[in-house]
Simulated assay, not measured.
Amino acid sequence: MAAETLLICTACGTQFPNTDRNALKTCFICDDPRQYVPPSGQSFTTLAALQTSHKNDFHTTHSSPDNKAPALISITTSPKFAIGQRAILIPTPAGNILWDCLTLLDDATIARIRELGGLEGIVISHPHYCSTHVAWAAVFDCPVYLAAEDKAWLAQLSERQVFLDAVETMVLLSGPRLLIADTLMTTPAGLSNWAINALNEPRSRPPGTNSFSFMWSIPNMIPLPADEIVRMWSILKNYDFTSTHGAFMGQDIEHRDVKARVLESMQIQIRSMGYEGHPFLHTLW
């Protein structure tokens, strides 16, 4: 079956190996407690239909204060479709890597990415962003890397999928940049400009202000357990990074202290969930 005719969930953007609307009535991704079916109900579209109503935009994201690292390129779909996440193209000496994926794949997108050097691989952070990754991998003839534990959540299987067993947590470190999708959710306070006040006078961040939240389900506002947050820090503490890049446009934090702000945000959330005596609150940077 041609990828353009396969059904796509309009709520999460997942493509199914099915063209029969009478046979496919629900989306098992949206039925998971971490996601949702919109009030309008379950509905499906096709890639062919999206190609006539939507387009992908390419945005240069500078994330290296000294300009030594190549710029990241964020790709978004307009008008917004499904979850509305961005994919991020990462230039590396070995070729371009695409972090996460978008549902819309059209001729203009293919031509632009090929102009930029094509893709050596795609890395998917979690099943909500699998979208049409099988079609992307076929077009660019590249592997797709996924956590092995997520295999049960895939609507389509492909010989190009590579399942990683030794995954610590699904973020991606590229030089000084940490691509976080929504594993660490960038908060509005994390993007605030605390450097000056309304009179252009210098100031510092107010104490107790977070930069990230740690959620089991972002749309349904269910936080991660305290021990899972601690496990995340046990991994992240081993790596150095000076910027984070979230799932959506505008969620880039570039600051020499961003790693310390991750730890601080974890402690703020654990304390706010009622774990005043949790030993992690005494963890020092």
Rank of each mutant, 00 (worst) to 15 (best):
S43T: 12
Q35E: 15
D20V: 10
Y36E: 07
F28E: 12
N22F: 13
P33I: 03
C27D: 00
P38C: 04
F28V: 07
D32L: 10
T45D: 04
N22C: 03
A48D: 02
L24E: 02
Q42P: 09
A48S: 09
T46E: 04
P39F: 01
A48I: 03
Q42D: 00
T26W: 08
A49M: 14
N22W: 06
Q42W: 04
A23Q: 14
L24V: 01
T45G: 07
K25I: 06
Y36Q: 05
L47E: 11
Y36N: 08
Q35K: 12
S40A: 15
L47K: 09
F28G: 07
T26Q: 12
A49F: 11
S40V: 13
P33K: 01
Q35S: 15
P39A: 10
R34A: 14
L47V: 10
F44N: 08
L24S: 04
A49Y: 11
A23D: 11
R34D: 08
V37F: 05
P38I: 00
S43R: 10
Y36R: 10
S40W: 05
F44G: 08
R34V: 13
F28R: 11
D31Q: 15
T45P: 06
Q35G: 05
D32M: 07
T26C: 01
D32N: 15
D32H: 15
P38E: 06
I29V: 12
P38Y: 13
A23P: 05
G41K: 06
K25D: 05
P39H: 01
L47I: 06
D32C: 00
C30K: 03
A48W: 02
I29F: 04
F28S: 14
S40D: 14
Y36W: 10
F28N: 13
I29R: 10
Q42R: 15
R21Q: 14
T26Y: 11
C30D: 02
I29A: 11
A48E: 12
R21N: 09
S40I: 11
R34L: 06
S40Q: 14
R21P: 07
P38S: 07
D32P: 03
P38M: 04
I29C: 09
K25Q: 13
T26S: 14
T26P: 05
G41H: 09
D31R: 12
D31G: 09
G41Q: 01
A49Q: 15
R34G: 14
T45C: 06
R34C: 11
K25W: 00
S43G: 12
D20S: 13
T46Q: 00
T46K: 00
T45A: 11
R21D: 06
D20I: 09
C27W: 03
N22R: 14
A48H: 06
I29N: 13
S43C: 05
F28Q: 09
